[in-house]
Amino acid sequence: MTDIESLVGTRIGSVIRRWTDKITEINRKYATPRIRMSRGVKVVLLFLRLYLIFLVLLLGYKFWTLLG
């Protein structure tokens, strides 16, 4: 019996394992982006990351002020 199965039981454990295996398979399948990472693409993706970090910080701030 593997770790996860001993932790949550055989049936649930095998379901979780199936899902984690599937996710690992997807990650492996799409590990290398097909699109050529030119400087323009890299800049756009960096902008997207910064934009998302900004939004997450904003949401966090709103949540914090709501709690306060």
Binding site: I26, N27, K29, Y30, A31, T32, P33, R34, I35, L45, L52
Partner: peptide, 12 residues
């Protein structure tokens, strides 16, 4: 998106 930009952007 998964295919072109990889799994990080795909999952997001």
């Amino acid at each position: 998106i998964f295919d072109a930009f990889g799994s990080f952007w795909g999952w997001f």
